[in-house]
């Protein structure tokens, strides 16, 4: 049974992964972390992650364009890396997002996105 730690280990196995965390985006709190965070500060990174997710969910209209639409991924590309955010959809009340930081040279965006999708699903769906 994959737990939270296992999920993060798997995330770090994604080619090019530098760091990973699971973030509560209402409060910007890193529930679990591994590897490196931007500026070596997981808590600050989590706070920033939360701001980005909040901006996409409540401060913009992307998610309310179609009824029952749902935010899945947020992908930020920078010159040096990729930052992937995948929302973890639990049945019970939680507001969690899986965050993985990839190195630009070694990382492959498409592969990483597929892997994260699988990880986030496995975390909460019995296989």
């Amino acid at each position: 049974m994959p737990g939270v730690d296992h999920c993060l280990q798997e995330a770090m196995a994604i080619p090019g992964a530098v760091g990973a965390s699971i973030v509560d985006y209402t409060t910007g709190f890193p529930v679990a972390t591994t590897g490196t965070a931007p500026n070596s500060d997981h808590e600050a990174a989590a706070a920033g992650t939360a701001d980005v997710v909040q901006a996409a969910t409540s401060r913009s209209l992307f998610v309310s364009a179609v009824p029952h639409d749902l935010l899945e991924d947020l992908i930020i590309t920078t010159a040096g890396g990729y930052h992937l955010l995948r929302l973890v959809q639990t049945d019970f009340d939680s507001r969690l997002v899986l965050y993985v930081w990839l190195d630009r040279v070694q990382g492959n965006l498409a592969v990483a996105r597929r892997r994260m999708q699988k990880l986030a699903d496995e975390l909460v769906v019995a296989t």
């Binding site: 049974m1 994959p2 737990g3 939270v4 296992h6 999920c7 699971i22 509560d24 409060t27 709190f29 529930v31 679990a32 973890v88 639990t90 049945d91 019970f92 009340d93 939680s94 969690l96 496995e122 975390l123 909460v124 769906v125 019995a126 296989t127």
Partner: peptide, 21 residues
């Protein structure tokens, strides 16, 4: 709950973590 297959380990951990904080 996990052993009986009602929840995944991940769900349980996330739920408990959320409840704790």
């Amino acid at each position: 709950l996990v052993e009986q297959g009602h929840l995944t380990q991940g769900e349980l951990e996330l739920c408990v973590l959320g409840a704790i904080y």
